[in-house]
Design a protein around this nucleic acid. Structure first.
Lengths: 183, 183
DNA sequence: CGAAGCATGTAACGTGTTACATGATTAT
DNA sequence: ATAATCATGTAACACGTTACATGCTTCG
């Protein structure tokens, strides 16, 4: 397998779509991202179409066109090379970013929480907690989810619960500190 | 406060740096990101210098130059407007991305785990577990961390542990399924 | 037939990255 | 003196976003 720059997350997911569903149009890849509430990609045409052209130039996918009026529908399929790179992307070994903890904007904000007054801090925790709980309720398996999809979802739920627990712990600790300062 | 597009995470962090350390040069902002192992930003000059120019055009920071040889050192400080926007960025209400779960590349890969053979799957879990444990050991507070920094770090540790627990659970479940299929 | 939306793109832009350039300062 | 590193940038690029353009299909 020729050395090739590391695939991006989006590229890996697109290859994964082709692996999972077989030959697909750019639009159906888009569709999945547009429909999925858990995907953080917009499914923008401006990302998908150039990406598939790129992958074709690299030889990871091959397209055949099917007549559809004047514009042709273009079906992309994984090539054997593409399958190997997909599996490598899936891999181990993992790139550093794959395993290092994802950025958590709430965690980032805790660094600066001292910049908020007491009243705003209370709102901070209340709002964050409420939003996280709401988010948790959105994390339900769609009807067509397979076992692996469900395990993935379980991971998302677990992380969300961990964030809630952590926030509660911080909140309680700060409240305790404030009360001891007052007493 | 004039309506203004929402600040990016990096912009918020840069304003946070100015809030925390007072008037600073672009370089010292960079320095902090270059040095911190937990920041996921590269601290690239090509991000920081234009960003501060942008914030100055928006009136969120103001710079004064101090003579330093031929090139001047430029110290940026938060303006009152900048402080208000920083607090708004920090505060509730939160943008959707702030609270919705961060992308977890490991979780993404679980969706496609069926594409790996049994042998590679074993490697997948072993490698991921090992890397996560290693990552956990890196998550220690630097000597100058204040209380909020430590709470933030505690969040990172908690999330990492949640990922480890989740991975172990998935691994065990798959092993169980495999053994029942064999028996 | 006309409107909605399916399907395939293109254009302009924002933001962060790496790599490079260059002057000033510090250490050997 | 000269090498390293501090400090201030600039240039080219990668990748994803929104917004737009346009042809085809379906449904009332």
């Amino acid at each position: 397998m020729a050395t090739l720059r590391v695939l991006s997350e989006l590229e890996g997911c697109v290859l994964g779509h082709l692996w999972k569903y077989g030959p697909s149009t750019a639009y159906s890849v888009r569709r999945e991202m547009l429909d999925s509430p858990s995907s953080h990609w917009s499914g923008s045409a401006g990302a998908i179409y150039p990406l598939l052209e790129r992958l074709e130039r690299l030889g990871l996918v091959a397209s055949r066109t099917a007549a559809r009026g004047e514009r042709d529908a273009r079906f992309y399929a994984l090539t054997p090379l593409g399958m190997r790179h997909f599996q490598r992307w899936l891999g181990p070994p993992f790139e550093r970013d794959v395993v290092s903890i994802a950025v958590d904007p709430l965690r980032t904000r805790i660094h600066f929480l001292r910049a908020l007054g007491p009243r705003r801090r209370v709102e901070f925790f209340a709002s964050a907690r409420a939003e996280l709980e709401r988010h948790l309720e959105e994390l339900v398996a769609p009807p067509d989810a397979d076992g692996f999809d469900r395990w993935s979802l379980a991971g998302a739920r677990r992380l969300t619960k961990a964030r809630i627990t952590w926030l509660r712990q911080v909140e309680r600790a700060l409240a305790r500190r404030a009360s001891t300062r007052l007493s």
